[in-house]
Structure formats: structure tokens, C-alpha cells
Design a protein around this nucleic acid. Structure first.
Length: 424
RNA sequence: GUGGAUGUGGCGAAGUGGUUAACGCACCGGAUUGUGGCUCCGGCAUUCGUGGGUUCAAGUCCCAUCAUCCACCCCA
């Protein structure tokens, strides 16, 4: 236990963490190109925020939250997603008072108590964006376009954008009623979970995986078929804007999303080959949420991307990120106490100059130090012993060429700077 | 919360109940003076996730427990 991490969490080790840096860099870069600014909110919030913001009947709230009482008897919850916190921050910091819309992004850990499996963890990481203050359909398309751009920059192609409209407060009740009407005489034929869904969340029957339910749901009223005229207009415009961007999509009438706050546009980006959890990105519009959280009626839209799933995807697509690994430029091998001392000082000096330098810390033999230098992949190994010290010189060995020369110690920085500049 | 699979050194992986737990990789050291990548030699699990039990004898059988993986539910 002492040496075992909690279930569903991961250590991101050297060799792996470089990939995360790269992913984050791409996300930040694309966001900045699109005019989105980063926001960092707390990792925990008052539990009420998620009850209200995510929805009391969602699975997240009903069974997946990491909640606890702090020493002040306040109920605190580790954030299960990013939208609620972002909305809270938008309201609390009165960002609505600035020119609208507000375009934000976040990257960070989220927490859900769930059984781990491929692409699903209890602590996982999301990159997400939110736009508050515009219900313009081009924003819907832009948000999707941003997600696609990130994936493109990562050289991920062939991903499917699924899109649907889930309606608005006007047409949603109508649709729910139509659904219930449609299924009520077929109820006993539905699978057990769908029978429950009929009362609890009839929308979800539409994407049940059971063949029987699929068959039964084939002619069910879709959210689109029950959409009110304004929803339909919005949706067609979104599609038109997507066409304008040249983004390929599949209108998927069975796509519904699990969080209560979605309205109008809902979308997912799916990949094959990363296990059962195939959505690497999910999002949509939530025009009622900000009001729900105590703000003035303000439209909003966003998505979240699962970083672990992105990484899995990169892996299965065979996209090689190994060139991201960095290695030191210089290794200093020293023999003897006095040279070690000098090597220590020299290493520090080189590092301050921005020359990445490694040395021995275990009094290894020269042979072993050379071996270590080789494995680190340095360009130069400096060899320093009593003889060199006496002559105020240092041996510089260029590893790839197996050539070495003696350089006066005082010139070494210049020499290395020149040598490292030329190639790589 | 439910179901299935797995659990031997840092990693991969042999091991039909019976003396000292293969092998490969990695790691460490050495092959005469202070020099890497190839080769050769040597070292590296009082112990088989943990705890019980069966047995003269268990890594090998049984039970429990924990963990991991995968799937369901749901979601990123």
C-alpha cells in the first residue's frame, strides 16, 4: 500500500512527461492562435457547484464525485470536469463585464470515482475550452474547428466528428414526451437498463448498445425531428459553417450527452483502436448553464478533450514522439578528488551558460563515466584528471567522431558554444 | 456497483507438488597503466502480490484479500 498509488491514478515518468509537455504546447499554441486565454481554477470547489452545474441526476454527481468535508465542515469536491468551475470563475470574477464573448481554455487534472479501464482513470487530464456570451452558430463551428486543429497539429487524421442537436428548453420536453410515447408500448422488449432509462433519462435509450434496443430505436423520434424551428435553424447554420471550414462530420441522431446542461449542439470526436472509451473529445452548447449557476442568461459552448486518450491515440496511430526526449550536450568525466572538484565547478558554470551538462556522482571509473556519457547521448565528453589540471587544459572528446583534442580550460566555454551551435 | 483475465528479480518470461527458482533484456563490475558504442567474463530473486489452509513436501492445489488489466454502466 505504502508503495502503491491509489487505484486509477498514474505516475507520469520521465520519458513520458515530455509527451505531455508537447501535447500541452500544441493545445496552448492553437488556443492562442484562436484567441483563447488560459484560466486556472482550483482543483476542488464547493460541492454545490457541481450539483448545480453538472446536474443532480447525472452519473458524475450520483456516483463519481470525490467529495469530503474539510475541517470547516464545508462539503468540498475534487472537480470532475472543467466547465462548472470555469463558469463559476467567469461569474465570480465578473468577466462578463469585459468585452464579450469570453474565450477561455484550461488544461489540468479531473477526478471521477469510476472503475478504471483502458482510457479511463480516476485522476485524468482534460484540455478544454469554453466560450461565454455568444450564441452565434459560427462559434459552435469554431469550437469544433479548434478541436480539429489541435488533432491535426498532432497529425491525427481520420477521426470522426459526430454532431447532433439536443434541442432547447422549448423543444426538449416535447421530444422527451415523444420518446416516452414511442417506447411506452415497447417497454417490455427493451433491455433492463433501458427500461429504467425510460423513466430516468429516455434520451440515452437512443445510444444503447444492445441490438434489440437499437432495432426498437430505429424509428424513434430524434432530437432533430422534434426540434423547434429556431433549434433547427441554429443546427443547419452550424453545419453550414462546418462545411465552410471544410470539416467532415457525421450527423448522428443518436448522439446525446450525459451531462444535463447541454442544449442545441452536441458533438463528439471518436477514434478507433483505443478500447471501448472511444471519445477523445466531447462537448456542446449549454445556453442555460450560466443562468443556472446564478448569472444572467448567457449562452455558452465548449468541449473537453481527454489527454490520456489523446496519448493512447497517438500511440496506436504509431506517431513517434521519441524525438522529444532531450539529452545533455556535455558530460564531464573527472578522475580523482581535485579534478572532481573542478568538474563540479565547471559543470555549474556550463549550466549557467545554458549548456546542458551532466557529470558523475558515484566516483565511477573513467571507463564507466565514458560509458555513461555514451548512453546519455552527449555530443562532447570533457575529461579532466590531474595531468590536465596541472596543464590548465581539458580533453574534449567528440563522441560521434571518437576524436579528442586538448583545450585550455579557460577557452572551454567558447569552444563548446561554438561546437554546439554548428549543428543540432 | 457488476462480470472476466492476470499477479515469478527493474522489464519480458520459463517453471507436469519434490534437492541449490531456467533464459533474454536492462543494470553494475572486470578483460593490467586514465577513454564509450562490438565481443568475452563475472555479479544481480533466502524467494514467487499478501495472508491463511491442504500436504512429509507448494511458485506449482484450495480459500480469502489486495492490486493490475479488460469489459458493462457511464464518460474525457
Amino acid at each position: 500500500m505504502l508503495t502503491t498509488r491509489p487505484r486509477g491514478t498514474n505516475d507520469i515518468l520521465p520519458g513520458e512527461v515530455e509527451k505531455w509537455h508537447y501535447l500541452e504546447k500544441v493545445c496552448r499554441r492553437v488556443c492562442s492562435d484562436f484567441g483563447y486565454q488560459e484560466i486556472r481554477t482550483p482543483i476542488f470547489e464547493h460541492t454545490e457547484l457541481f450539483l448545480r452545474g453538472v446536474g443532480e441526476t447525472t452519473d458524475i454527481v450520483e456516483k463519481e464525485m470525490y467529495s469530503f468535508y474539510d475541517r470547516g465542515e464545508r462539503s468540498i469536491t475534487l472537480r470532475p470536469e472543467g466547465t462548472a468551475s470555469t463558469v463559476r470563475a467567469f461569474l465570480e470574477n465578473k468577466l462578463y463585464a469585459e468585452p464579450q464573448p469570453t474565450k477561455l481554455y484550461y488544461i489540468g487534472p479531473m477526478f471521477r470515482y469510476d472503475r478504471p479501464q483502458a482510457g479511463r482513470y480516476r485522476q485524468f487530464h482534460q484540455f478544454g475550452i469554453e466560450v461565454f456570451g455568444s450564441n452565434h452558430p459560427s462559434v459552435d463551428a469554431e469550437v469544433i474547428g479548434l478541436a480539429c486543429t489541435v488533432l491535426e497539429k498532432l497529425q491525427l487524421t481520420g477521426l470522426k466528428v459526430h454532431i447532433n442537436t439536443v434541442g432547447c428548453p422549448q423543444c426538449r420536453p416535447r421530444h422527451l414526451k415523444a420518446l416516452v410515447d414511442y417506447f411506452s408500448d415497447k417497454k417490455d422488449k427493451l433491455c433492463k437498463t433501458c427500461q429504467e432509462r425510460l423513466n430516468k433519462n429516455p434520451l440515452r435509450i437512443l445510444d444503447c448498445k444492445s441490438d434489440i434496443c437499437r432495432e426498437l430505436a430505429k424509428d424513434a423520434p430524434t432530437t432533430r425531428s422534434s426540434a423547434c424551428p429556431s433549434c433547427e435553424v441554429h443546427f443547419t447554420k452550424v453545419l453550414k459553417y462546418l462545411d465552410a471550414l471544410g470539416i467532415e462530420y457525421v450527423v448522428d441522431p443518436r448522439l446525446v450527452r450525459g451531462l444535463d446542461y447541454y442544449t442545441h449542439t452536441a458533438f463528439e470526436i471518436l477514434v478507433e483502436g483505443i478500447g471501448a472509451q472511444s471519445a477523445i473529445c466531447g462537448g456542446g452548447r449549454y445556453d442555460g448553464l450560466i443562468e443556472q449557476c446564478g448569472g444572467k442568461p448567457t449562452p455558452g459552448i465548449g468541449f473537453a478533450m481527454g489527454m490520456e486518450r489523446l496519448l493512447l491515440t497517438l500511440e496506436t496511430k504509431g506517431i513517434d514522439l521519441s524525438q522529444l526526449l532531450t539529452h545533455p550536450d556535455v558530460y564531464i568525466a573527472a578522475i580523482g578528488e581535485k579534478p572532481q572538484e573542478e568538474a563540479f565547478k565547471l559543470a555549474m558554470e556550463l549550466r549557467r551558460k545554458g549548456i546542458s551538462t551532466e557529470k558523475d556522482y558515484l566516483d565511477k571509473s573513467l571507463k564507466a563515466q565514458l560509458k555513461a556519457a555514451d548512453r546519455l547521448g552527449v555530443k562532447y565528453t570533457l575529461i579532466l584528471g590531474d595531468e590536465e589540471l596541472k596543464a590548465r587544459k581539458i580533453v574534449v572528446k567528440e563522441m560521434a567522431k571518437s576524436e579528442q583534442t586538448e583545450i585550455p580550460i579557460d577557452d572551454i566555454i567558447n569552444y563548446l558554444e561554438r561546437g554546439l551551435k554548428t549543428n543540432d
